[in-house]
């Protein structure tokens, strides 16, 4: 378990000082994966550096398994860092060391005997599925393989906490999926507590048990991933939904934005809503996926009735929440959305 209590980090002094983390409280129970998201400049990287103790907080504490690590003297801080494994962005391997030598780095620093190092590195390589790449240099590894080496290196000293600092940024979607899968698998096998700092919402939906939003140096919103995805009063929940473009509405229909608002939305909800309303329902766009066994998603519909109250009620009966699109500039907006969606897909 890791908890951050009243964590404050201020750079500079006096008038020129900047408070990056502001009395931040955050806790991740043992065996859970907590994603921390936030816009750039929110303090994500400073938070990461305080968690792995590369930076000492100005005040507040980092408590791992009941022990306050942030207040330790410099000499002991180095030992404390060994209890937290950090996975950095993919390019952070030492270029003149092989995969095996990169994984051995923390063991070398600790002064482990060569035999022990060899067997531990072998174990780790097997765990991340790279036994055949032991002697490869970073330039010979793909982005995903390099990141697996980074994960193995972070786990070399058997930490109880794993910190992933933008660990999947810059990886393609398939590679991200496999790296994320590995993190979840390792969490299950080793009972790791994982703090996953990222700005990629797609990755968050794949990896996280809980999600916290960091803004202006504080955790402003947090909750379990499923709760957030199925309750749309939450700004964090909305930002977790994939945003896609949708087709334009047909004449005589009104555009509705619909989101899964419960964990029990029936699979045939479109049919049910159509029957309920006795009006045509066009599917203009949708994104549905299963997160931790629960169907979540959102859809854009064109509905051939003007009676908004009836539509809201019909949707609610299926566990959905809907808002009509009243804006006069619907078409312009729609075109932009489609374009944005197309660009996103192309990328």
């Amino acid at each position: 378990m890791i908890s951050l209590r009243h964590l404050t980090k201020t750079y500079g002094r006096g008038d020129a000082s900047v408070t990056v983390l502001d009395r931040l409280d955050f806790e991740v129970p043992t065996g859970r994966i907590a994603a921390v998201v936030g816009p750039s400049g929110a303090g994500k990287s400073t938070l990461a550096q305080c968690i792995n103790l590369l930076e000492r907080p100005t005040s507040g504490s980092v408590v791992v398994n009941g022990e306050d690590l942030s207040g330790l003297p410099e000499k002991r801080l180095r030992d404390a860092r060994r209890r937290i494994g950090t996975v950095f962005q993919s390019s952070s391997l030492l270029s003149r060391r092989t995969a095996a030598e990169n994984i051995a780095l923390p063991l070398d620093f600790l002064g482990v005997t060569p035999q022990e190092t060899r067997s531990r590195v072998g174990e780790l390589l097997e765990r991340v599925g790279l036994t055949d790449k032991a002697g490869h240099y970073p330039f010979q590894l793909s982005g995903g393989q390099a990141q697996r080496v980074g994960i193995a290196r972070a786990l070399a000293l058997r930490p109880s906490i794993l910190l992933a600092d933008e660990a999947t940024s810059g990886l393609d979607p398939d590679t991200t999926r496999s790296v994320v899968g590995l993190v979840r698998e390792l969490r299950d096998d080793l009972d790791l507590t994982v703090v996953f700092i990222t700005h990629e919402m797609d990755t968050v939906r794949q990896v996280a048990d809980t999600v916290a939003r960091l803004d202006h140096g504080r955790i402003v919103e947090q909750g379990s991933l499923v709760d957030l995805l199925t309750s749309h009063g939450s700004r964090l929940g909305r930002s977790l939904q994939p945003r896609r473009g949708h087709a334009g509405p047909e004449a005589g229909t009104r555009t509705w934005f619909v989101t899964y608002d419960s964990t029990t939305v029936p699979g045939d909800w479109i049919q049910r809503v159509t029957a309920d309303l006795g009006a045509s329902v066009h599917l203009l766009g949708a994104s549905v996926e299963t997160v931790h066994g629960v169907n979540t998603g959102s859809a854009t519909l064109g509905i051939g009735t003007e009676d908004d109250a009836r539509v809201v009620a019909a949707l609610a009966r299926c566990g959905l929440s809907g808002t009509p699109d009243h804006s006069a500039a619907t078409f312009g907006q729609t075109d932009e959305r489609i374009l944005a969606g197309a660009l996103e897909d192309a990328a």
Partner: peptide, 15 residues
């Protein structure tokens, strides 16, 4: 040498 490499070494517990 990229600063991130130094961070890696520090996080790995290097003196």
């Amino acid at each position: 040498v990229p600063p991130s490499i130094i961070q890696v070494a520090r996080a790995a517990g290097g003196s």
